[in-house]
Measured scan of single mutants.
Amino acid sequence: MDSLVVLVLCLSCLLLLSLWRQSSGRGKLPPGPTPLPVIGNILQIGIKDISKSLTNLSKVYGPVFTLYFGLKPIVVLHGYEAVKEALIDLGEEFSGRGIFPLAERANRGFGIVFSNGKKWKEIRRFSLMTLRNFGMGKRSIEDRVQEEARCLVEELRKTKASPCDPTFILGCAPCNVICSIIFHKRFDYKDQQFLNLMEKLNENIKILSSPWIQICNNFSPIIDYFPGTHNKLLKNVAFMKSYILEKVKEHQESMDMNNPQDFIDCFLMKMEKEKHNQPSEFTIESLENTAVDLFGAGTETTSTTLRYALLLLLKHPEVTAKVQEEIERVIGRNRSPCMQDRSHMPYTDAVVHEVQRYIDLLPTSLPHAVTCDIKFRNYLIPKGTTILISLTSVLHDNKEFPNPEMFDPHHFLDEGGNFKKSKYFMPFSAGKRICVGEALAGMELFLFLTSILQNFNLKSLVDPKNLDTTPVVNGFASVPPFYQLCFIPV
C-alpha cells in the first residue's frame, strides 16, 4: 500500500510540474494548442506526416506557434517570411542545433551535424575549407563525379535492359564520391566492405524516417530501456565508426604531411598542428563522427533524390523527352556531361530543381535551437528552445509555385524558357546551418541524371499514369515507394 501511495504522489508531482512548466512558459512563447500533461501535443500531431499537421496548425495559430513534445516546448516556423527572418536575418541567433537524443547517444555531441557552439563552428569551418581545397564546386571533385558517372552508366548497362530496382546502384554512385573525398578511394560496386557500408546507410535513412524515431526523440528514456529499431540505428553508426577508425589508422601509418590526399589526411594534419593548443576540438573521436556525418549527409540524401527523380521522369515521359532533346543538342553522344553545360541547359536545370522542390526530401529539416534569449515577432523565446522549420511550407508555397503539388519544371523557367532562380528554393535548409555539401549534391544530381539520360531511355513496367509517387515514409525524410524500371541503351 505504501508503495502505491508513493507512486501516486510521484505521478501527481510530475503532472503538477508539467502543468507549471507549460503555464509559466506560455506567456512568453508564441500561441499554440493546449498541451496535455506529460505528453504535450503529441496526440494532435500525425507522426506519419508531421508536415501536414504543421500546415493545419498554422492555419489556426499563424506562421509562428508553439507545440509541446512531452514536456519540451518547440517553436514552429511556417512559411517563407518566418523562416527567412529566423535563419537568414537572425542567422546567428537561430544557428543552434536542437535536442536530438538519439544523435546524442550516437555521437556524444561530436561531428558537424549535431554539434553546437565553438566545437560546431570550428569543425564546420575546417570541413568547408577542406572540401573547397579539394575542389568542391571546382574541377578536381567534378572529375571524381564524372568518373563515377561513367562507372554508374557501365553498371546500368550490365542490367541488359531487364527490369531492376535502382535503389542499390543509385546509392553506390554518391557513396563512392564521398569515399573518394574521405578515403581517396572508390570501391567496386561488388566489394563486400562497400556493400556493408551501403547497407547500413540505407537502413539508417529508413529507420530515421519512421514514426518510432519521432517518439524516441521526444521521450528519450525509451532509447535506453525499450527495444526497437533505434538500437539497430545505433549499432549501424557504431559499425561505421569502427570502419572509419580502421581507415584512420591506415592513414596514420602512411600519411605524407607534405601531400595530403583526402579529408582524413587533412584532419590528422590539423590534429598535429593543434596538439599544443589544448583542449582542441580536433580529436580522433571528432574525426570519426565528422566522417560519419559526411557519409550520412552525402550519400543517402543524394541517392534518395536520384531514385525519386527517375520515378518522376517515368511518370512524366514528356519531361524526359525534353531533357534528352536538350542533352542531344548541347552535349551530344561523344563526350561526358560537365558542369559548364548546365548554363546552356535551362530546361534540365529546371527539372533538377523541380525534383528537389517537389519531393521535399527533408520536410522539417533537422531541429534548430536559439543560442540566446531572443525577441522574435513580439515573442520571447528562451535560450536553448528547439525550433522546428517547415521546409515544406517554403518549397510548396502556392504563391511562389502555382499548383505546388504538381510536378512542373516551369516553376523554374521564365516566359522565355530561361532558368529562373527562386529564393524559396531551400531543399538544403538556409542560413548558417545550410548543408555543407550543397554544391557537391547539386553537381552530382546534374551529372548523374544527364549521364543516365544521355545513355538510356527509361521504360516503366506499368502505365506511367498508374505510377504512385507518394512517399512511403514522410517523417525525417521523404522516401519514394518501391518501383522497377528498364534502362534501355540509346
Rank of each mutant, 00 (worst) to 15 (best):
K138I: 11
Y379A: 05
E274S: 09
K235G: 08
F425P: 02
G98C: 11
S140V: 09
Y483Q: 01
K315S: 04
V153Y: 00
Q484Y: 04
T392L: 07
N378Q: 10
V436T: 12
L467P: 00
K28H: 12
Q278F: 10
L461Q: 10
V319T: 08
A238P: 04
Q356I: 12
L453W: 00
L29C: 03
F407Q: 00
A161K: 07
I387Y: 02
H410D: 12
T301V: 04
I389K: 03
T305N: 05
C435V: 00
K423S: 09
A149T: 02
R26N: 12
T386N: 09
D373T: 05
N231G: 09
H316T: 05
N277R: 11
V490M: 11
L485G: 01
S422V: 08
T386F: 07
T34P: 13
D188T: 05
G437A: 11
I223K: 09
R307F: 02
P101N: 13
K247S: 08
F456V: 00
E274P: 07
G137T: 12
T34Q: 11
H316V: 04
T301I: 03
T305Y: 04
C338I: 09
K270W: 06
I387N: 01
K160Q: 11
A321S: 13
F219T: 08
A430N: 13
G384E: 04
S460I: 03
C151H: 15
Y379R: 05
D397P: 03
L458Y: 00
S209E: 06
S140C: 10
Q324L: 03
P31E: 07
K84R: 13
L19H: 13
S365H: 04
T385H: 04
D143V: 11
G46T: 08
M1I: 00
K138M: 14
R329A: 11
P346E: 04
L234A: 11
V436R: 02
L311N: 02
F168G: 06
D349M: 14
K465C: 09
P481H: 05
G442P: 10
L4N: 12
L7E: 10
R342F: 05
D224T: 13
S422N: 11
K383E: 09
N378I: 05
K247M: 08
N474T: 12
L17Y: 11
E318L: 09
F412I: 00
A103D: 15
L29V: 03
S53Y: 11
R329D: 13
D256R: 09
N455R: 06
N334V: 14
S51G: 14
K119R: 14
D89Q: 13
P317M: 05
R105V: 13
E154P: 00
D408P: 00
T348M: 11
L29A: 04
L461M: 14
G109Y: 10
L87A: 11
R132S: 06
F476Q: 15
V60H: 11
R329N: 12
K247H: 09
P367S: 15
P317S: 07
E147S: 05
L4M: 14
T301G: 07
G117T: 08
P166I: 00
F456N: 02
K432I: 05
L294Y: 03
K247T: 07
L233T: 05
I223N: 08
T302S: 07
S303H: 09
S343D: 11
G70L: 06
F219Y: 10
L90D: 14
D373F: 01
E199T: 12
A321C: 12
K235A: 11
V75I: 15
E250S: 07
K273M: 12
Q193Y: 07
S336D: 11
P227S: 10
N236S: 03
S460Q: 03
L67V: 15
H276V: 10
N204C: 06
I327F: 01
L29Y: 09
I42K: 07
L362H: 02
C338S: 14
L461H: 10
P402Q: 11
V145A: 01
R26S: 11
F407I: 01
K48T: 12
E285K: 08
I45A: 06
I488A: 08
T229S: 15
G79N: 09
D165I: 00
W212H: 06
Q192T: 12
S343K: 14
V323N: 01
E92I: 09
C266S: 10
C372S: 14
F100K: 08
T348C: 11
S303V: 04
F134D: 07
L152Y: 00
K160V: 04
V75R: 00
V490E: 04
V38R: 03
E92C: 08
D165L: 00
I452Y: 01
K121T: 11
P480L: 02
T55F: 12
A161H: 04
T469A: 10
E104I: 10
